[in-house]
């Protein structure tokens, strides 16, 4: 038996996952997963370690593209997507990964601005937008610092800034509060809620009870396949 969770009432499906199975070697990480996520939903994927939370998020932005079943994001069928369209899919999605993935040789400003460079924003717009978003996430005045010189909590804040700077439709966050203290976790949770309020669809993979309770999002419990 797989998991079936349909989208909430009056929501247009932005992400449709149907019968998705993903194997890691001989073991299934996901089995026959079905899940619909509507526009501007806040969905929390929870479950024990090894349940496939990270794998599911990786499939959504095609960091891992080998799976069975069907995933449709904003009308794009990921099982049939051509290589040339993958960048366009990824531009619809802001990702906050578990390891933050900031470039150590670039300043915080450059790390965030990279997303806008990729899309083709001009210099003036990049500067305005990045400074603004860094201010929103509480990193104002730290633009010229390097990732290694700031705390883990601040690194997540920068990762959040990078994920939202181009106003993506979807924000995927993998354990965004993992290993953070209470105060830093609160900052991140509030930021996610803020961007949700602005219209983004948020999908968070976590086993942080605090995050699950505070956000009030739809909870999807993922269990490891037997």
């Amino acid at each position: 038996m797989g998991y079936i969770l349909l989208t909430g009432k009056n929501k247009i499906s932005l992400i449709k996952i149907h019968g998705v199975t993903k194997a890691h070697g001989l073991k299934d990480a996901l089995r026959q997963l079905t899940l619909n996520i509507g526009e501007n939903e806040f969905v929390i994927i929870t479950g024990p370690s090894g349940a496939g939370k990270t794998t599911l998020l990786q499939l959504l932005y095609l960091e891992d593209s080998l799976f069975q079943g069907q995933i449709i994001i904003d009308g794009m069928n990921l099982s049939k997507i051509s290589n040339s369209l993958i960048p366009h899919l990824r531009r619809k999605i802001g990702v906050i990964s578990q390891k933050y993935k900031l470039i150590p040789t670039k300043t915080l400003f450059e790390n965030v601005a990279l997303v806008l460079e990729v899309i083709g924003y001009n210099k003036r717009l990049r500067i305005n937008r990045v400074n603004n978003i860094l201010k929103i996430v509480g990193m104002d005045g730290k633009q010229n610092l390097y990732p290694e010189t700031i705390s883990k909590g601040e690194q997540v804040q920068v990762a959040v800034a990078r994920a939202v700077v181009a106003n993506p439709k979807i924000i995927l966050a993998d354990e965004p509060t993992g290993n953070l203290d209470y105060e830093s976790s609160n900052i991140i949770i509030n930021l996610l809620k803020r961007f949700h309020a602005r219209g983004a669809t948020i999908v968070v993979a976590t086993h942080d009870r605090e995050l699950i309770n505070i956000t009030g999002g739809r909870i999807f419990n993922l269990n490891p396949p037997p």
Partner: peptide, 16 residues
């Protein structure tokens, strides 16, 4: 490599 991997994740094309 690391920078390129991150660029791909944020939607950079092969051309970029």
């Amino acid at each position: 490599q690391q920078e390129i991997e991150i660029m791909r994740l944020v939607g950079a094309t092969d051309g970029f």
